[in-house]
């Protein structure tokens, strides 16, 4: 398993809540760091798949790299 680090432009609990819900649908282990606007996802899925899922929330998303 690899942990991937993403930057997601979240500004409030509503934003992180939205991210939580889309990731739950994907069935992956993840951790959200709201103050630092980071999302850590533990998954063997392709990073493009994870990136697309995060982008569904309509927020700015950048892939930082494996942790």
């Amino acid at each position: 398993m690899t942990t991937h680090e993403f930057f997601v432009d979240m500004t409030c609990e509503g934003c992180s809540g939205a991210v939580t819900r889309v990731l739950k649908k994907l069935d992956v282990k993840f951790d959200i760091d709201l103050p630092n606007k980071k999302v850590f996802i533990e998954s063997d899925k392709d990073t493009d798949v994870l990136l697309e899922t995060l982008k569904k929330t309509g927020k700015t998303v950048n892939y930082i790299g494996p942790k």
Binding site: C12, G14, C15, G17, G58
Partner: peptide, 15 residues
């Protein structure tokens, strides 16, 4: 349900 701030509103409107 689940929107708490202006940025949530904006992202929905934009998308």
């Amino acid at each position: 349900e689940g929107m708490t701030c202006g940025s949530c509103v904006q992202s929905i409107e934009q998308r």
